[in-house]
Design a protein around this nucleic acid. Structure first.
Length: 510
DNA sequence: ATGTCC
């Protein structure tokens, strides 16, 4: 296979599909018809649905028709991905799919509420000092993981093995200086192996460590507490709670403070998760080749494993190992960010509002039976009273949904409504890309992008903001949120207004 | 997403 076709479906992918047949069923809902199988539910206003290009819709159809798939949902932020679109939910009671989890296992959002009033970060010099203190502790960029200041938090091999098998356990949190209470603010603080045991993960890890592609395990553990690159970021926000009684009530239950500073983070499982995901793709693709198993729609990114097989067990174990890394990575980042705030503004206190993934498969009850719900660029959205929230702090309200928008228009905290049942209890994971990276670099102007940050008084660690990450490379966030609200999936609790952004600046000067 | 192909 040549480099140019490697990441895209082969041309015969489209042979049995004559084009999208999208039928509008409401202001922000539609059905995408696949022929024989039930239609795909699509969420998005008409202008949002126009952003779905043919390949994105084709990927949705391919995924819906793949073996063992019983449901597929397309969200307003959907765009082309690997095999399945980014911005979709795929349900299967019988199969697991690495592609519709994604290559960054448990890529997630977290929000730290600080006890600082907005005025505390008004001074540009204070914000510059915060940017510097944070960047010294939570590095950005490929391969970066070494911290230059602060409390020593070296992750040795033993601690690395412990954290990828235990997740955010009390022992792991204590070893890394993470408040143990934060584990209760996680969608999942701990992922177990395919048989629901931790020992399965310990065994799988020992097997992996004998493989060459995992020989850099200790090195990858050093990346704990770092952002990485691409669309990952850290962002200082001012919380603006919605102007209605429900928003105020829910915000209070979430621990959000109107008019106060918060810190939003987006990152995943770094090089470790990438090693695991790419290893799984290679292994499964080799087996499909060797055994002559037909690929769904001829797409190598849609390889799968039937539940109960050794292949599925290994995949689920690898996903859990990567997910545990991502969980502890986010919690450590939040601890480091709090430490940075305390250095610049002594006495600052902070609490984790929530940590929630948008790239993970979870075993959930769908239509009264267990199924693997693959959310690829999609966020779990369970409303008040949902059985899975029993004994969590959010049983009576629904859990926080953290949606990054862009540094110009803000981000959002939402809460699910009853209507979320129609989307397999899911919403979007952000704005969604509207320009590909190469396209963005060609059509967007660096000076315009940078001056927009300046006129909005949003500071950044980047001298030049990465142009393929500019707000204009993403969909209209307000229209995306309007889609979610109008479809009855979730309600807005608060907006987050950016004051400064931490991004990987290393490729911005190309 | 990922030292952007072991």
């Amino acid at each position: 296979m040549t480099a140019s076709t490697k990441n895209r479906p082969s041309s015969d992918t489209r042979s049995n599909y004559t084009g999208p047949a999208m039928v509008s069923t409401g202001e922000a809902t539609a059905m995408l018809h696949t022929g024989e199988t039930p239609p795909i539910r699509v969420f998005g206003t008409e202008s949002i649905r126009e952003t779905f290009d043919d390949l994105c819709l084709q990927q949705a159809v391919n995924s819906r028709l793949a073996p063992g798939v019983t449901d597929l949902v397309l969200n307003p932020d959907a765009h082309c991905g690997y095999g399945a679109p980014v911005g979709c939910v795929m349900v299967s009671p019988t199969h697991v799919y690495p592609g519709p989890v994604g290559v960054d296992i448990k890529c997630s959002m977290s929000l730290l509420q600080l006890d600082l009033p907005a005025e505390a970060v008004e001074d540009r010099n204070v914000r510059r000092a915060l940017i510097s203190a944070i960047c010294q502790r939570t590095p950005t960029g490929a391969g970066k993981g070494q911290r230059s200041v602060g409390k020593a938090r070296h992750v040795n091999r033993t601690l690395g093995k412990q954290l990828v098998t235990e997740g955010a356990s009390n022992d792991v949190c204590r070893a890394l200086g993470i408040p143990t209470a934060w584990a209760h603010r996680c969608e999942d603080s701990h992922h177990v192996g395919h048989d629901d045991t931790e020992s399965a993960l310990e065994n799988r890890l020992e097997t992996l460590l004998q493989h060459r592609h995992m020989s850099n395990f200790s090195e990858k553990m050093q990346q704990l507490g770092s952002y990485g690159g691409g669309n990952h970021f850290g962002e200082c926000e001012v919380v603006q709670v919605g102007d209605n009684d429900r928003a105020r009530e829910v915000a209070q239950a979430f621990g959000l403070r109107d008019g106060h500073v918060a810190f939003l983070s987006h990152c995943g499982s770094r090089g470790f998760g990438h090693n695991l995901a790419s290893g799984q793709f290679r292994t499964l693709q080799d087996k499909f080749d060797r055994w002559g198993i037909p690929l769904p729609a001829g797409d190598r990114q849609l390889v799968y494993a039937p539940l109960g097989s050794d292949e599925a067990n290994d995949y689920l174990d690898d996903m859990a190992l990567g997910a545990n890394f991502a969980t502890v990575n986010h919690l450590l980042i939040n601890a480091l960010v709090l430490e940075a705030f305390q250095e610049v503004i002594p006495g600052t206190q902070g609490n984790l509002v929530y940590f929630i993934s948008h790239n993970i498969a979870r075993k959930e009850i769908v239509d009264d039976r267990p199924a693997w719900v693959h959310r690829k660029g999609a966020t779990r959205a369970m409303p008040a009273g949902h059985h899975s929230l029993t004994n969590t702090p959010f049983a009576k309200t629904g859990h926080p949904i953290l949606l990054p928008g862009n540094p110009r228009d803000g981000s959002a905290v939402m809460v699910a409504d009853e209507g979320a049942a129609a989307s397999c209890y899911s919403v979007n994971h952000g704005a969604g890309r509207v320009l590909g990276r190469r396209h963005a670099k060609r059509v967007l102007d660096q000076a315009t992008v940078d001056s927009e940050f300046d006129s909005n008084d949003v500071l950044s660690n980047c001298r030049k903001y990465p142009i393929d990450e500019a707000p204009a490379a993403y969909k209209d966030f307000n229209e995306v949120l309007r889609s979610v609200k109008s479809a009855g999936l979730a309600s807005e609790v608060a907006r987050l207004k950016a004051r400064f952004v931490i991004k990987d600046a290393s490729k911005a000067d190309d």
